[in-house]
Simulated assay, not measured.
Amino acid sequence: MGFEATQKGNPHKLTINQHVFPRKSIDRFSDESGLVQLFRMDGAKVISAASTNSLFCAKRAWDQSTESGIGKHIEDRFQALAQSILAGSTKVIGCLEKTVVEDFFSLWRTRQKFRAEGLEDFKLEGIRGDSLTKDQQEILERQHVMFSRDGVMPGRFAARIHVFGYMNTFRQDNQHIQWGIVRAGEGEFIVPDCFQDMMIVPVSPKLLIMAEEPNSTLTRSEVAITNQTAIERSTVYYFARKLASCPVLWDSPPRLQRLFSK
């Protein structure tokens, strides 16, 4: 599904490239040059990529309100928690932290769904729509106001409804789930474009937050199993600070294994 382009020059600064997994989270995996190693599944090759790379983004799949409103709120809360864990100030995922982690995981998974499937425009029965110029439409969206055209509303405006809906359902379905802070004793973690059904939230090359797992330090073999899970759940790409530092239980051809030993 294509995306709706803005006016030339994007005068109202609407976000076009929308990160599915946040830039700040990607940056924690970057090397001294500010890059991560990313494996593109379509071409079976490894590239170096900055967190600004469009591969990490959907193109205007959700509206500006979802991007800079609810999405930013969830991200900001999670980034503060991640920083607190890395600084050693937060040592357990308690009730308050659980909500922060689950809202973030739900947002990540929902954004991935928007990128993969898009949101169809929908007709508003009994509403004729607004006579608005392109400029007026963009001003309204920048101000977090929805609009319709000839009784049809752009699908991206439904995103905020879906975000809240999926988030609330996720909370209800996982009321009794506990999360643990999991560290890699040896090796580093791989980040998929989304963990899909596996409730794992990457924080840094050596740290994850994982559901139904107590605070623990994983052996090299356990890190390899986690990384294999990340690869299996990936659809477009996966990345790490340095893929050669990430053990994996390989069941793929030696040709692919050699890509990570360079």
Rank of each mutant, 00 (worst) to 15 (best):
P154L: 02
L107N: 11
F157E: 09
Q137H: 01
E125Q: 07
E138Q: 15
I190E: 06
E141M: 09
T169C: 03
Q196S: 14
H144C: 13
N168T: 04
Q175Y: 01
S216E: 05
I209W: 04
N215D: 14
V182I: 15
G185L: 06
I139V: 15
E117I: 00
L218R: 14
M167Q: 15
V101S: 06
D130G: 07
F157R: 09
L207Q: 06
K123H: 14
K98I: 04
G180A: 05
I127D: 09
E138A: 11
V100R: 11
S204M: 06
Q137T: 10
D193T: 12
Q137C: 13
G187P: 07
M199E: 11
M199Q: 10
W108F: 11
N168Y: 12
E117P: 01
R115E: 09
G185H: 04
F189M: 06
E213T: 13
I181P: 00
I209C: 05
Q196N: 13
D121H: 10
L207Y: 02
K206A: 04
S106K: 09
H176R: 14
M167Y: 07
D103M: 12
S148H: 11
E125M: 06
R109A: 13
V201K: 05
D135L: 13
R109T: 08
L140K: 15
N168L: 14
D173P: 00
D121L: 01
Q178H: 13
R160V: 14
K113Q: 14
V163E: 07
S216H: 05
T99K: 14
L124G: 02
M167G: 10
A116I: 09
D103V: 03
I200N: 10
L119E: 08
R111E: 08
T219C: 04
S216K: 12
E188D: 08
G185N: 05
G187I: 06
D135H: 07
Y166V: 10
S106C: 14
I177E: 13
P202A: 08
Q112C: 03
E186T: 02
P214R: 12
N215Y: 04
Q112W: 11
V182A: 08
P192A: 03
S106H: 10
L132M: 03
G155A: 05
H144S: 12
L140V: 03
K206C: 00
Q143V: 00
I127G: 00
T133H: 02
D121C: 00
I181G: 02
Q178R: 13
E212P: 00
H176K: 13
Q136K: 09
H144K: 13
I200V: 15
L124N: 02
E212Y: 03
S216V: 10
S106M: 11
I181E: 01
F105W: 15
F157G: 10
E186S: 08
E138T: 02
V145G: 00
M199W: 04
P154D: 05
S131I: 11
P154E: 03
T99F: 08
E102M: 15
G126Q: 04
L107R: 12
S106W: 12
M167S: 15
N215Q: 06
V145F: 10
T99N: 09
F170K: 07
L124A: 02
Q196R: 13
K206F: 02
V101R: 06
I200M: 12
D103A: 13
